[in-house]
């Protein structure tokens, strides 16, 4: 898995490339915690290149969402692949996360 970070005026965009699973979720966890500790409150996760996610990965996204919501920040997802979207639906996450079809729409939300 590879993380591609991009700073914009509105938010920090984190692109996930590859598989997000039990073995490597700690990379994402570590980076998100660092950003949160730096009081970053506006984060977008671009999933366009994320091929796979397991419950461990989802757990990290959920944790980040909870923490940012607590400090009244904003945490959104965008560009989910079709298979991944189904996983989100099965888990019920589609009703919890703000999910946008593409980065542009997501930026407009900030």
């Amino acid at each position: 898995m590879e993380l591609i970070e991009k700073n914009t005026e509105k938010c920090i965009i984190i692109g996930i490339k590859g598989r997000l699973d039990t073995i490597n979720y700690s990379i994402l966890e570590k980076r998100l915690m660092e950003l949160l500790d730096q009081n970053v409150t506006k984060i977008m996760v671009n999933c366009s290149q994320m091929d796979y996610v397991s419950s461990s990965g989802l757990r990290i996204l959920l944790m980040a969402l909870k923490r940012i919501t607590m400090v009244k920040g904003k945490f959104v997802l965008c560009s989910l692949q079709e298979n991944i979207r189904e996983i989100f639906e099965i888990s019920g996450f589609t009703s919890i996360f703000e999910i946008y079809p593409n980065e542009e729409d997501a930026l407009n939300a900030f």
């Binding site: 397991s54 419950s55 757990r59 959920l62 099965i90 888990s91 019920g92 919890i96």
Partner: peptide
Amino acid sequence: NQTIDERKIGGLGIHF
């Protein structure tokens, strides 16, 4: 079907 506050971090895997 839980809200974000109720949602526990575990249990999701077996559900999948």
